[in-house]
Amino acid sequence: MKIRIIPMLLAAVLLSACSPPQPPQLQQGTLLPDAKIIADFQLTDQNGKPFTRKNLMGKWSFTFFGYTHCPDVCPTSLSMLAQVMKKLEQDKTPGAKPQVVFFSVDPERDTPEVLAQYLPYFNPDFIGVTGDPQQILRLTRQLGILYGKSPGESADDYLVDHSASILLFDPDGNFRALFGTPHDPDRIAQDFVAIRNYYEASR
């Protein structure tokens, strides 16, 4: 009887070693069943340099879509992302450190100069991206990001409604996971590590 059990156990161990890794259970994020490949776009970073799909490749990217005239939700989310980065600082795994990219959905007012002033306040490494409204639309449409102007006190004081989710791109530049609100830095940092490990194990 014993003799039979051992080969069965062995087979089970071998099978589990060969089976693909299971998607992680996330606390806050939603992992896309299949990473979404996005078409290229032509935008500009806060230093006036081109920012395209290529800039989302080679490292993980947390991305957020907002505008600098937003006094409540956007600074809260950017401070939260700064906290996530702080929590991930200890992680010395090569290629582990993600970048944070803030895409403006208010390119009329958010020039590269404005973004260059605004973003380092949260973290000196944060990247700000703006540019041609058509190109922003081209990118956001692929990602399900919504935004639109809503009237404020005067013509210049308009508000912008915008998706509040944080999107995670993998080092292939593909849309991989999404974090809805309310955002919690501990959970997002832990989810990120789980997603990254799963990605590495699946390659």
Partner: peptide, 19 residues
Amino acid sequence: RMVMLHKSVIVDGVARMSH
């Protein structure tokens, strides 16, 4: 010069400020 009372709400994932 101006103080406005606003409320942020998130409806279906979209953040919106209303006066």
